[in-house]
């Protein structure tokens, strides 16, 4: 197995309308690390995640996943390694039934029927949603949609998992089972979220970004207890550290 390294070198990105979303981002995530990305609204978290598999291409700088540098040619290869769970599950679930949706990725990988069915079964039971398999997504609750969206990415068995606000639509119990699930995922993962308690629970390392630059990068336990740093970035101490 190649090493699941994510390396951003001086990555900048400007949207067509001129907004500079990322300005010289640098970080390196090594195999098996789990990293939280936090920051104020509009700091560039989602833009950053979309660079992980070439949905967006850096205006300057390089993104390296494993031993591949992200270019138009390597995008397809990289997409097999990096699974991204987007923020809005309605955008992620585009097929008419849950089963079809989870099977979409494996089928595109060219797997045979038996293994596709097996993958789908495995991915759906991982998020406790096997019963939903024949339902159309518009009959699901938002929590169920999120769970299925995660399963649809897990079914690709990615080496690196990237998630954008995974717990936003979840009730506390589903959020707890998501945390357990994320902890059991042994590969590298990168999670952008405002849910600082989730980051604290799941990620050993935390990156704070502001206006498209990295302002802090270190162990979650240190960063998420630094009240001044957090408040400068429109954040606050995780609830578990707040004393009333």
């Amino acid at each position: 197995m190649s090493h699941h390294i994510v390396d951003f070198k001086n990555v900048s990105f400007r949207y067509p309308d001129g907004t500079e979303a990322l300005r010289g981002i640098n970080f390196r995530i090594t195999h098996g690390e789990s990293v939280g990305v936090v920051g104020a609204n509009g700091a560039g978290k989602s833009t950053l995640l979309q660079h992980m598999n070439g949905c967006l291409m850096p205006t300057s700088g390089t993104v390296t996943i494993g031993d591949l540098t992200l270019t138009g040619k390597t995008r397809r290869e990289i997409r097999k390694k990096v699974g991204i769970v987007f923020q809005n599950p309605d955008d992620q679930l585009f097929m008419p039934t849950v089963f079809d949706d989870v099977a979409f990725g494996p089928l595109n990988l060219g797997m045979d029927e038996e293994s596709v069915r097996e993958r789908v079964r495995k991915a759906l039971s991982m998020v406790h949603s096997l019963d939903l398999r024949d339902k159309p997504p518009h009959h699901l609750s938002s929590g169920q949609k999120s769970a299925v969206a995660i399963a649809s990415v897990m079914a690709m068995e990615p080496d690196i998992l990237a998630m954008d606000e995974p717990a936003a639509n979840l009730d506390p119990k589903s959020r707890r089972s998501l945390i357990t699930l994320l902890k059991s995922f042994r590969h590298s993962k990168i999670i952008a979220s405002h849910d600082l308690d989730l980051i604290l629970d799941v990620c050993q390392r935390c990156i704070v970004i502001r206006d498209g630059t990295v302002v802090a990068d270190g162990p979650s336990a240190e960063i998420l207890t630094n009240r001044t740093l957090l408040e400068e970035n429109n954040l606050e101490l995780p609830l578990s550290f707040q004393r009333r």
């Binding site: 949905c55 987007f86 955008d91 992620q92 979409f104 990415v153 690709m156």
Partner: peptide
């Protein structure tokens, strides 16, 4: 966004 999600899954 949907198109990105589709591309992400091959």
């Amino acid at each position: 966004r949907i198109y990105y999600a589709m591309l992400s899954r091959g």
